[in-house]
């Protein structure tokens, strides 16, 4: 293999791992980082997005629109669940873990009962590109671009819009924000819905590449939690760089020793980070700034 195709193979592996980590973690990171709620139903919001995307796509709607529909559906479910359950548990983190776990179980079992053990999927679109001796899925390259784009859009949302500024103020000092007229409950509701919609978006984007089963959320859950734990509470200073570092670890170990060791590498990384940096990368970066 010549240099260029080897380099492409490595970059592709890294990009694929990075995109999966970023997309699967974004929703979880927003909800944890902004609200401190550990959402164990994260995988089921992903599943919801995937199922709705596939159902809508099979009605003949173009895939990009179907993915948007999947994301919106998950966001709306998130809004309802926030109103009915999460809102009552904001100052009880352990209770919210148990409650979201319960929601996760209800969702997977409910989908199993209503829609059966599997749903017919849609094939991965866009075919493949040949680089050197190997061929690569074009759609997976699109996913890498989508991951970068979503980080950019989230950054603009949180740093360049009124909602974003008010959300950041609310996270920093909810009482002070209230005393300035901010309806903090509404901010939390919108933020939870945003996190759910991001999870749904991840599900929609990966739906064409996966088998649709009610437990498919579990495929994402390890990667998403590892990324958020390594990253810490800030999505831009934490989750995004964490996804880059973990992407390197995973792509490197996978290329060297195979898929299984790639996964082991992630788990070892998270154990090390918990020992050394209890507040994750963003804790380290912000700590040094002060």
């Amino acid at each position: 293999m010549d240099f260029f195709s080897t380099a492409f193979a490595i970059i592709y592996q890294f990009g694929d791992a990075f995109a999966f980590l970023v997309l699967s973690a974004a929703g979880l990171a927003v909800i944890f980082g902004m609200m401190g709620v550990i959402n164990l139903a994260h995988g089921e919001f992903i599943m919801c997005g995937a199922y709705v995307t596939v159902a809508v796509a099979r009605m003949g709607v173009p895939l990009p629109l179907a993915i948007v529909a999947g994301s919106i559906a998950a966001g709306l479910v998130g809004l309802v669940i926030e109103r009915l359950v999460i809102r009552h548990l904001y100052h009880r983190p352990l209770d919210s873990i148990v409650a979201t776990w319960g929601i996760s179980l209800i969702a997977t079992q409910g989908v199993l009962i209503v829609l059966g053990s599997t749903m017919q999927g849609i094939g991965t679109p866009l075919g493949s590109v040949q680089v050197g001796a190997l061929s690569y899925s074009t759609y997976r390259i699109v996913l890498m671009a989508a991951a970068v784009l979503i980080l950019l859009v989230l950054w603009l949302l949180f740093y360049r819009t009124r909602y974003g500024v008010i959300a950041r103020a609310t996270i920093a000092a909810p009482q002070m924000a209230r005393a300035l007229g901010v309806d903090t409950r509404r901010v939390y509701a919108l933020t939870f819905a945003l996190g759910a919609a991001l999870a749904g978006l991840a599900g929609g984007l990966y739906a064409p590449t996966m088998t649709l089963v009610p437990t498919m959320g579990a495929t994402f859950i390890v990667e998403s939690f590892v990324t958020v734990v390594v990253g810490g509470a800030d999505i831009f200073l934490g989750a995004a760089p964490a996804a880059a570092i973990l992407g390197v670890i995973r792509a490197g170990l996978t290329a060297w020793q195979g898929q299984f060791f790639g996964q082991i590498g992630l788990l070892v990384a998270v154990i090390l980070v918990i020992r050394v940096l209890p507040n994750g990368l963003s804790g380290l970066i912000l700590g040094n700034r002060r």
Partner: peptide, 25 residues
């Protein structure tokens, strides 16, 4: 309300702090 200890939002810029203050009006 201007609290004891000021409680500005430390990681927000000065103009972002003022923007949050707009909410009341």
């Amino acid at each position: 309300y201007i609290p004891q200890g000021r409680e500005v939002f430390p990681r927000l810029s000065v103009s972002e702090n003022l923007m949050v203050g707009e909410t009341a009006g």
